[in-house]
Nucleic acid binder design. Structure first.
Lengths: 245, 245
DNA sequence: CGATTCCTTGATATGAGTCAACAGGTGTGG
DNA sequence: CCACACCTGTTGACTCATATCAAGGAATCG
């Protein structure tokens, strides 16, 4: 599979791109790299000279407090450009790290800049990506601010399934997907302790609502998970709403 | 003062804009409106046809859960375009509401679109705004996920001062600023109950760290507030770091 | 197969929520 | 100009969700 296939698929699903736009994206010089799990792609304070597309595998973005606690800000899946902002905000304000072994395609900032300057539709599509990124952060704020531990977990897991479905990595009705997450990482993402994550998970398991085992997330009763997480996919802006109206 | 002065000031401080770019921004047709406190500018589900620049006054963005709890996502000050994303993500995924009486300048999406298509540097500057918006959301996630109630409050109040300073609404060393916030709104922003906000505030007051009274935020001991909130302004990306390096 | 890492469990602690009542201001209408 | 309502802030008593601490068990890996 071509390295940019998933990204292009997502860009097209949301924005009108001409054939020349697609061709220009496909023509980008890529530096493809296979990396280990837990490889830092960019760390807070870095000034990267390239953006990274996840071809395969998963990554997360995180920030540390002075006191050393880690908050995971977001998870990233194939087709994402998790450090797109480094093109414009030169200094990283957070870390970007792989979860699993991953294949990454790096695009030099200079090349990406040139693409944007010559292809306004691509620029618009990437701007849109930034906006959806922000929309997901907003939902995360809602999650952390007002929802209970179990609702947060359910919400996160349904969101991931939904995003994987968007790029075709799961069927929309699939109840399970591979995601190599530890309970400790889940805790850092949800603002909980690992002990509590464990207990919430066990409760979900015993209620036959959902289960996570061996990197496999099973939404046993999707309805219940969606309800528990108060999940409404509107904020992901996956449908094409870029037309006026 | 011209309506776009603060916005232009901010855009210029971060990005290289030519005289023609500035002129084009200044030439935008504006619909200026004075509104009451607690006026909804756009609500979740709306499909606005214009973006709004805050000329005067304050606003907040918020989301509601099914169960009716409100989470305030961000506060906005003069010079901000809090619904810039509506230009690209047509359907609002959250609410935008004024706090105080405010003066708003609306720019029609069509006009803004045209400006972006003809002035790449402006497009880049606005993209950057979206990225800084996302960076502030990330810090908010950190706030809610890992910081204590008092740290959250301190952090929020220093951030606001810093942003007001950026557009020149307070001097950088000023210890106080006007901000018409209720304890209940503060609670919804910080993910706390109003009772607890009240108690944290009283503790800060008695320690002579900070005080909020009658719409006046006083950072009595700025050092202590900054320390309590673990505030490091880097994430606001206020300095010009748009040059390569 | 020993070492790590991840998961699980129980006991205990605590930060923050909830409930309820009251006080101080502010605005409004009679 | 008073009376009343309403909103914001304050306080106390009690509860609860989640954290912390500590230890053991299961799985994974070189």
């Amino acid at each position: 599979m071509p390295h940019l296939a998933l990204l292009i698929r997502r860009l097209r699903s949301a924005t009108q791109l001409g054939e020349d736009d697609i061709a220009a994206v496909r023509a980008l010089p890529l530096q493809v790299k296979a990396v280990e799990p837990e490889t830092p792609i960019a760390l807070e304070g870095d000034r990267p000279h390239a953006c990274c597309i996840i071809v395969n595998g998963f990554a997360y973005r995180s920030k540390l407090t002075e006191s050393g606690k880690r908050q995971i800000l977001s998870f990233h899946i194939p087709g994402d450009i998790p450090d797109l902002q480094s093109l414009v905000l030169k200094t990283m304000d957070h870390d970007l790290v792989t979860i699993s072994a991953a294949t990454l395609a790096f695009i030099d900032h200079a090349d990406l800049s040139r693409l944007i300057d010559t292809h306004a539709a691509v620029a618009r599509a990437l701007w849109r990506e930034t906006m959806v990124d922000a929309a997901m952060f907003r939902e995360r704020i809602l999650n952390l601010g007002v929802r209970s531990a179990s609702a947060r977990m359910a919400h996160l897991l349904v969101e991931l399934r939904q995003r994987l479905a968007e790029v075709g990595l799961v069927e929309i009705d699939d109840k399970e997907y591979r995601f190599p997450i530890t309970q400790s990482a889940l805790a850092d993402a949800l603002g909980l302790s690992t002990v509590h994550v464990n207990r919430v998970l066990q409760e979900f398991r015993s209620q036959r609502v959902l289960d996570i085992r061996k990197n496999l997330v099973k939404l046993i009763d999707v309805e219940k998970v969606v309800a528990a997480g108060e999940f409404d996919p509107a904020y992901l802006h996956q449908i094409d709403n870029s037309r006026p109206g």
